[in-house]
């Protein structure tokens, strides 16, 4: 079971904490890009040289990659492969699972190294887990989720989305 329930709801405070963790990881690991996705492929936060890449596609393919690897793990009787590493000619991708539901991706080149990235990712992952725990505790204390911004959505609102 996921610790946050089916729907992930994030507020300003946690968003800022997550952004600052990613920012620090980006600097400490000498990375080009650092980003966080949930296992369903939704991007949560990103930091770094983002103009040159399509982050939405990156998020979706990362989640697909992790899902396929999870499937492989179960086939051979493993719970999960918690770290994936793809090595390219120039750039490399380091992917790790945080708290079983988030995916932390670090893209780096020869200015960094796998050892450094692994070291820094471990620390960042712990900090991210703390944020997630706090989010879960907050959600548990508040009991009911906040009223959805869509609670009073009308047919007209939806039709407007499709009119161009």
């Amino acid at each position: 079971m996921s610790m946050l329930g089916p729907n992930l709801v994030m507020y300003e405070e946690e968003f800022e904490r997550i952004n600052s963790i990613l920012g620090r990881l980006w600097v400490d690991a000498n990375a080009k890009i650092v980003f966080l996705v949930d296992k369903n492929g939704q991007q949560i936060a990103a930091k770094g040289d983002l103009e040159k890449v399509d982050t939405t596609s990156l998020a979706s393919l990362t989640a697909g990659n992790v899902a396929a690897t999870d499937g492989l793990a179960r086939l051979i009787g493993e719970k999960e492969f918690s770290i994936l590493f793809h090595e390219g000619e120039r750039d490399n991708i380091h992917i790790s699972i945080v708290a079983q539901r988030l995916i932390l991706v670090v893209i780096f080149d020869e200015r960094s190294s796998l050892g450094l990235v692994r070291l820094r990712v471990r620390k960042a992952a712990q900090e991210l887990e703390e944020v997630l725990n706090d989010m879960a505790n907050k959600a548990a204390q508040q009991g009911q989720a906040p009223v959805s911004p869509f609670a009073e959505i009308t047919d007209e609102d939806i039709d407007n989305l499709f009119s161009e």
Binding site: P6, M10, Y11, E12, E14, F15, N40, Q42, I44, P149
Partner: peptide
């Protein structure tokens, strides 16, 4: 399992 981000005021849905 939609993802609602109140911080950036975004909602993502998967179909």
């Amino acid at each position: 399992m939609s993802f609602i981000n109140y911080a950036s005021r975004e909602i993502n849905c998967k179909i």
